Simulated assay, not measured.
Amino acid sequence: MAESRKIRLVEVGPRDGLQNLKDYLPVREKLALIDGLIQAGVSHLQITSFVSPKAIPQMQDAEEVARTCLERYPQADLFALVPNLRGAQTAQRLGMKKVANVISLSESHNKANINRTRAQSLEELSRIRDSLPELEVCVDVATAFGCPFEGRPARQALLDFVGQVHQLGVRTFCLCDTIGVADPAQVRGSLTAVKAAFPDSAFQVHIHDTRNMGMVNTLAAIECGAGGVQSTLGGLGGCPFAPGASGNTATEDLVYMLHLMGYDTGIDFDRLLALAKSFHAAVPGNYSSHHIHIAQNPCC
């Protein structure tokens, strides 16, 4: 076993994992999930999204979820996804210190995902930065490794886009494999390139597991010095506006692998696995349309 190294694992299940479940999950069940994650040692969580309930009905209770969690867990690193200035203002009003704002590298996906051109999204990001300068903003670069409409992007396109966002004062980025088409060499090359071009910035990754490449791509990012890796309990999730996108990399599988390799996640694997199993049992019908990857035996 290698010498223990710390790695920041960011759980995005309460938002990305739940956002397109076919049935609405009541607030009490969302809070029970977040409680369980916190008790298992997860300290970095994306807990909701301040979006229109018409677009994402599952997030209709975002304010209640955020308010309750911020009161219960003031020491935890809690944040939300916001698509616009209004969402960012809501997050700050509730007491959040940081948010994620998603913009696609692909123009086509940006229009499908948030009904804006990329230029319009950058303008909205500029308004967020100008209006709420004390709010930390991480830009999630969707389709950073591939788009369902435009294919694989050129490396220079990624560098140019990160440069545009960087000029707006953003210093935290998450490169997202929105439809799960990346490979380890691409992940290493992209991450190495952006880290070299923007040494004052931090880069995370968000990897989908559509083709069973989630673990190896996430590991490639870690070995290239990613500042954090995102995953969801049970591998739930996927972009509702990206054809063919299935679930995310499963948190419990990732924690198991990283612990074997000597990484310190700060997470209790046994508690995490029990939570994944109990949550799956509690809402079995909601999993039918998702790529689910819950380890039934930690030896497998």
Rank of each mutant, 00 (worst) to 15 (best):
A220Y: 05
C147R: 12
P298G: 04
I56W: 12
Q92N: 07
S246Y: 00
L159N: 14
A157W: 10
N110I: 02
Q120S: 08
L191K: 04
R155D: 10
A196N: 08
A295L: 13
T178M: 06
R152Y: 13
E124F: 07
S131E: 15
I292D: 00
D77Q: 09
L125D: 02
D270R: 10
V102W: 01
H208D: 09
C300L: 13
G247S: 04
L122H: 07
E71S: 12
A182P: 00
G234S: 00
A2M: 12
T172P: 05
T143L: 06
A197F: 09
R152K: 14
L275T: 01
T232S: 15
D209H: 08
K22V: 09
V187P: 05
G238T: 04
V82L: 05
G169S: 11
V12I: 12
Y263H: 03
V51K: 06
G235L: 00
F279A: 02
F203N: 13
E223I: 03
A80S: 15
E124K: 08
R67G: 05
R127K: 13
G227I: 02
I38K: 04
L273H: 11
H208S: 15
A250T: 00
D268W: 03
H166N: 06
T90R: 15
H109Y: 07
V205N: 05
F145L: 09
R116H: 05
Q58P: 06
S201E: 02
A76K: 11
A221E: 02
D264V: 11
L273F: 12
Q19R: 14
E150C: 12
N84L: 12
Q46M: 14
M96E: 10
Y24N: 08
P184F: 05
R152M: 09
T218R: 01
Q58L: 02
L78G: 07
R8G: 02
S126C: 10
S49C: 01
N248M: 00
P74Y: 09
A40H: 05
P243R: 10
Y287W: 08
V187H: 11
S288D: 13
D77H: 11
E223W: 06
Q230D: 14
I128Y: 07
M1H: 07
D130K: 15
F173I: 08
